[in-house]
């Protein structure tokens, strides 16, 4: 009897919690729904009063408008965004895992001093270094190239070194010693032992880097002014006009949908690693 009442109480509790969570989940998803719906709406219906929250009168007009905008500029933007994000990601994974290996497992002169310096620069906000960097890159002719968006991120990623080091430290030394007995040099140890074991952390760091680079609007805004070098964020921002009607909004919603889809797919494929990566930053 008592357990039955308890069961009933529990069902009520779960129902209330489900309701609350549903409200939040819908709140999180609504902007995406709204973006996709309006990208498929008849452009002239977008500002129809009252606004349709649901509609079945759909069209590809806005997508066609995006595809033909500036002679297919969207494909160029896609390509450029992907080039910048993938080279940054693979580059940074390589250099920061190399450095993390040395900091975690090798003994060398000045190790602690250099590592402390690295850690100290975790707290320097990007806004402080971006001004002098802009001046430097302007002087060596890197404006209107992808280099300022790729090279600094590849060459210095203190967060990456810090994160990967903490994983490499937990790899048992015996593995490396056994490899040494077999005559493995430092590079073979790195490629054959460290890298395979590091894969989950590399995926996590890779995801963060990819999304960070994809979203680096500030950097793209100051370094890229050529039409040829346009990226997706720049293209979307450029679609905004002073006078906006349903046609312009439809176009922006279509372009936004196109720019969100690749990250959403990458993310859904690797959700597990992503969540793990964030979860560990909080516990430390």
């Amino acid at each position: 009897m008592r357990s039955l009442r308890r069961k009933q109480k529990n069902i009520i509790k779960i129902t209330i919690i489900t309701l609350i969570l549903m409200v939040f989940a819908i709140g999180c998803l609504f902007p995406f729904y709204w973006m996709i719906l309006n990208s498929f709406k008849q452009p002239l219906d977008i500002f129809k009063v009252p606004v349709d929250i649901f509609t079945f009168d759909l069209t590809f007009d806005s997508y066609m408008a995006v595809f033909t905008y500036g002679d297919g500029l969207i494909w160029r933007a896609y390509l450029n965004s992907i080039i910048i994000a993938t080279t940054s990601t693979f580059g940074t994974l390589f250099t920061s895992s190399l450095a993390a290996f040395a900091f975690a497992k090798l003994k060398f002169k000045g190790k602690n001093a250099i590592y402390s310096l690295f850690i100290a620069c975790l707290m320097i906000p990007g806004q402080v270094t971006i001004l002098p960097l802009f001046v430097i890159f302007a002087n060596i002719g890197w404006i209107n190239t992808f280099l300022p968006l790729i090279i600094p991120g590849v060459m210095i990623n203190t967060y990456g070194v810090f994160m990967l080091r903490s994983f490499i430290v937990s790899i048992p030394n015996e593995l490396l010693e056994a490899a040494e007995v077999d005559g493995c040099g430092y590079f073979r140890k790195y490629f054959q032992i460290i890298l395979p074991l590091l894969k989950p952390s590399l995926v996590t760091l890779g995801l963060f880097t990819f999304i960070g680079s994809w979203n680096n609007y500030f950097g793209q805004l100051i370094y890229l002014t050529d039409q040829e070098l346009i990226t997706l964020p720049l293209l979307i921002a450029g679609l905004k006009e002073t006078h906006m009607t349903g046609i312009e909004w439809g176009r922006i919603m279509a372009a936004s949908t196109l720019s969100i889809i690749p990250i959403a797919i990458v993310y859904l494929k690797c959700q597990k690693y992503f969540v793990q990566g964030i979860a560990t930053t909080g516990i430390k």
Partner: peptide, 12 residues
């Protein structure tokens, strides 16, 4: 649903 907002393009 909770995770989706943080992985999107902020400009879009």
């Amino acid at each position: 649903a909770f995770f989706l907002p943080m992985v999107t393009s902020t400009v879009a």
